[in-house]
Design a protein around this nucleic acid. Structure first.
Lengths: 204, 204
DNA sequence: GGTGAATTTGGCCATGTGTCCAGAATCTTC
DNA sequence: GAAGATTCTGGACACATGGCCAAATTCACC
């Protein structure tokens, strides 16, 4: 049973969390522009018309803010492939739609992915937001694995690689194309589509 | 024809470059410990018993120093597989020796590789040492491609992947195992050996 | 509308940053 | 061993950083 007080507290917490999400969302683009290390709280303030104080009111510090921001973005990002896995009716369709989606996110959100790799690397040096990064890594590995197993299922076969390897290979492909794309190679958009398709097809 | 003056100048340049290499080498370990962003010139000075002034005498700035340091390490690193490619007499031997070598460098020099990925990512945000990073990336892709083509040759076949894809996949595998290893997973050493072997075997 | 809580502001602090340089120390050359 | 070039030192500089907080503002509720 919930008392009136409990409901009020719940509501207050929800409101607080909602504002946290809002602020983290605003901050995200600012941090993505120049990377974690080169973006100070003041840069975020200036770009978002927020005071630096408010960031410390809603977050315990820079690490907390960045962890919240990247979690919001990337956890949503990992779910974009759910409908593809759920509704594809043939292996070829699955491969095709996966390739289109991953190519689109490379094209439209390269800054965010650059930030993701930036933060994942930073977390190898210090543990400020390491747990969040590890959780996201798991989500991404799950996503890749869901695609691989669905693909195998549609082919009536079993995957020839394990979950971790599948993630490592897709991630390597994506990072490579992201770097190429950021360095100005527009063909990277085609590359990620074709190469991830080939990789998926080879994973049976 | 070289005059005495020219020879003297050459010698002076050589000496200057030799000292640069020496200093960059000393600095390398210090930078690798906490990453590029979190390591100041003063940290390097303190850890290496060098004055901060001398760093600016031999280098134009922090970027120059770090570019020199990572180039020295990584360009040598990429050549370690040359003898393996040159002297392996069967595809299986090549795969085996490659796996042992890559696993050993993961075990013994994880800090350096962590720094490499750190710097490669930083170079996606600013161009301070971007050219050096791109040059190293080329070296690494060449190295992987040399292994893949040699493997195909020993099998009497042709590679089924292109140079860039081969590098992307091996790099993805290595980065994944590096992350796992740094997070405390000792099995990563076995994983990189077995998975890179499997990948190489599949690249025909 | 008044009262207390929640929210927001903008500036302060100590510390750390890359860069630079005047002068000291060392080496070279005659 | 004198003179001049090279190498090296350690501190100064201007600025950026994350964290913090007293005071101002806005809000919710009786």
């Amino acid at each position: 049973m919930t008392t009136a007080t409990e409901r009020a507290e719940r509501s207050a917490t929800d409101k607080f969390d909602a504002r946290r999400r809002e602020l983290a969302d605003s901050a995200l683009a600012a941090i993505a522009e120049h990377g974690f290390a080169r973006t100070g709280l003041r840069d975020i303030s200036a770009r978002t018309d927020l005071s630096t104080g408010i960031l410390h009111y809603y977050f315990t510090g820079k690490d907390d803010l960045i962890a919240q921001a990247i979690w919001q973005y990337k956890s949503e990002c990992a779910r974009r492939y759910d409908p593809i896995v759920a509704t594809s009716t043939s292996a070829d369709e699955l491969i095709e739609r996966f390739g289109v989606e991953i190519s689109a996110t490379l094209r439209d959100e390269s800054d965010m992915h650059r930030l993701w790799y930036d933060l994942r690397n930073q977390s190898l040096f210090e543990d400020g937001f390491r747990d969040t990064i590890i959780a996201i890594d798991e989500l991404l590995a799950d996503m890749v694995w869901a695609v691989v197993t669905k693909h195998a299922e549609l082919r009536g076969a079993s995957p020839t690689v394990d979950r971790e390897t599948a993630y490592a290979l897709v991630d390597g492909l994506f990072l490579n194309c992201l770097i190429g794309y950021l360095r100005g190679d527009l063909e990277a958009l085609d590359h990620i589509r074709k190469r991830s398709a080939a990789l998926l097809a080879a994973s049976i």
